[in-house]
Amino acid sequence: MPVESAFQPKIAAFCCNWCSYAGADLAGSSRLSYPADVKIIRVPCSCRVNPLFILRAFQRGADGVIICGCHPGDCHYTSGNYFARRRAALLFSMLDYLGVESGRTRVEWVSAAEGQKFAATMNDFAKTVASLGKCRRIGDLRCRTSES
């Protein structure tokens, strides 16, 4: 029986290049720590995040996926984050229905000036995901590693 506190969740964070990735950079240069389980994938805009990427992440063993974009109204591309928000709302509710708990998915707006918010968001999200344990619902059996 694995000890729950030792569980290290795998978290994929999609960050838009203009706001959230810069926010993550600011968190870094401000030395604000968050769990190493969070790994960032840079995308030009949150609207570049295809729902298929999120499904792929869960299939490949991710325990949580977060999309970060510019605040509403501040999108570098004017409207991309609105698309992202709508797509995420649909996908996340369907994932919840499929048994991937809503705590494992999140959309958060983080500006380039919000290093603090970025770190706080990642800490909170990682904590939530860790409390939910390993995500086994839609993981591809072929991708399972021995400990899962």
Binding site: K10, A12, K39, I41, R48, N50, F53, A57, R60, A62
Partner: peptide, 12 residues
């Protein structure tokens, strides 16, 4: 799409 999928695979 393939590139981002590859990144997803790598970090998961």
């Amino acid at each position: 799409g393939r590139q981002i999928m590859a990144e997803v695979d790598a970090i998961c």
